[in-house]
Each structure stands twice: as structure tokens, then as C-alpha cells.
């Protein structure tokens, strides 16, 4: 299970990096989401395999670490807001240039 999770996270990461390196800005934005999800899973797995009982008071068995879960919740919210913001910026850019090819969005070069 540990190995499988690690491989899945690694795969997600690789896909994200591949998308980030594409020229299309929308693909790049999707790559960003893949990476942030890979990181959320990584952060989650930091506390996942110490125990299986949830961290209630009086819980029996080995309690899993609740802190990474709280961190992941915060990180998910932030990355979702960030993704919405990136998409709205992309919307403005793509309507202005009529393309989402990063080689043709050249306003800043001059």
C-alpha cells in the first residue's frame, strides 16, 4: 500500500511537470493543479500510516496524526482559490490575444 501510494503520487507529479513544460497556457494551468494535488497527497501521506484510528478523545488503537489532515485542508482551499485566479487571468489573456499558446503571448517582451 505504501509503495502504491508513493508510486501514484510520483506519477501524478510527473504528469504535472510534463504539463507545466507544455507551451499551451491552459495545459500549464492544469499541470499546476496536478502538482498541487500530488503535493496534497504527499502531505496527507505524511501522517497517514502511523495508525488507523481517527484522533477522537478516548479512541482505541494507534491514532493517526491529525495535523497533516488539517494542513491538507488548508492547502486544498488555497490551491483551489489560486487555480480559480489563474483561470480568470488566463481568460483575460486568451481573449486579448485570441490564443493560449505561450509563444504568442508576447506583450511583455517589448
Amino acid at each position: 500500500m505504501n509503495l502504491l501510494t508513493a508510486l501514484a503520487i510520483g506519477l501524478l507529479f510527473a504528469a504535472g511537470i510534463f504539463q507545466i513544460l507544455r507551451r499551451n497556457l491552459i495545459r500549464a494551468a492544469i499541470g499546476l493543479v496536478l502538482i498541487s494535488n500530488a503535493i496534497n497527497l504527499f502531505l496527507f501521506s505524511v501522517g497517514a500510516y502511523n495508525g488507523i484510528a481517527a484522533a477522537y478523545a478516548n479512541a482505541t488503537g494507534q491514532i493517526s496524526d491529525p495535523l497533516p489532515q488539517a494542513l491538507v485542508l488548508t492547502a486544498i482551499v488555497i490551491s483551489m482559490g489560486g487555480f480559480a485566479f489563474v483561470l480568470s487571468l488566463l481568460y483575460v489573456i486568451s481573449t486579448r490575444y485570441k490564443t493560449s499558446d505561450s509563444d504568442q503571448v508576447t506583450g511583455l517582451k517589448n
Partner: peptide, 21 residues
């Protein structure tokens, strides 16, 4: 070009936040 500059910054900073996490 504020929008483009903001996109560029935000994108790179989000990657920086990824490293931070």
C-alpha cells in the same frame, strides 16, 4: 500588461508554494 505580469508571478509563486509545502 498587468494581467500577463500577474499571471507570470502567480504561476511561479504557486510553484514556490508547492516547494514550500
Amino acid at each position: 500588461y498587468g494581467v500577463e505580469a500577474a499571471y507570470k508571478y502567480f504561476y511561479i509563486s504557486t510553484l514556490a508554494s508547492a516547494f514550500f509545502l
